[in-house]
C-alpha cells in the first residue's frame, strides 16, 4: 500500500460520485485505486511545463449545422423509459429537506 490516496479520500470521492461503499469495499477500492495512481506516477518524470494540453484529437471548433427544422423527438417515447412519470414530467421523491 502506498500514500497515493487515503481511505478518507476514497470515501469523499464516493460521496461526490453518489455511491455508497461498505467498509470492505472502501478497503479494497483504496488499495486498487492507490495501485493505479502509483502506476500513473510515471508521468511525474516528464518535463511538461511547455506542453499544451490536448482535450480532443480533432482540431474542430464551433461545429454548426444549418438551422433546418427536422423531426422532433417523441415525448411519449422518452417518458416511457422513466421509472416514474406524472403530468408528462419525470417524477422523483422529495428533493428538499435532504438529511445530507
Amino acid at each position: 500500500m502506498n500514500e497515493r490516496i487515503s481511505r478518507d479520500d476514497v470515501a469523499h470521492v464516493a460521496r461526490l460520485a453518489c455511491l455508497s461503499l461498505t467498509n470492505d469495499e472502501l478497503d479494497s477500492f483504496t488499495s486498487q485505486l492507490a495501485d493505479i495512481l502509483e502506476h500513473a506516477a510515471d508521468l511525474d518524470a516528464l518535463e511538461l511545463e511547455e506542453i499544451e494540453p490536448t482535450a480532443h484529437p480533432l482540431p474542430l471548433a464551433n461545429v454548426l449545422r444549418d438551422d433546418e427544422p427536422g423531426a422532433v423527438a417523441d415525448r411519449e417515447k422518452f417518458l416511457a423509459s422513466a421509472p416514474q412519470v406524472e403530468n408528462n414530467q419525470f417524477k422523483v421523491p422529495p428533493a428538499l429537506g435532504d438529511p445530507a
Partner: peptide, 21 residues
C-alpha cells in the same frame, strides 16, 4: 430519474445513491 431501474428511497439524493450503488 429519466431511464433505467430505480431503487426507491425517501429523498431524491438517497434514491440516486441507492440506484447507482
Amino acid at each position: 430519474v429519466r431511464f433505467g431501474p430505480r431503487v426507491d428511497a425517501k429523498t431524491t439524493s438517497e434514491m440516486m445513491v441507492a440506484t447507482r450503488t
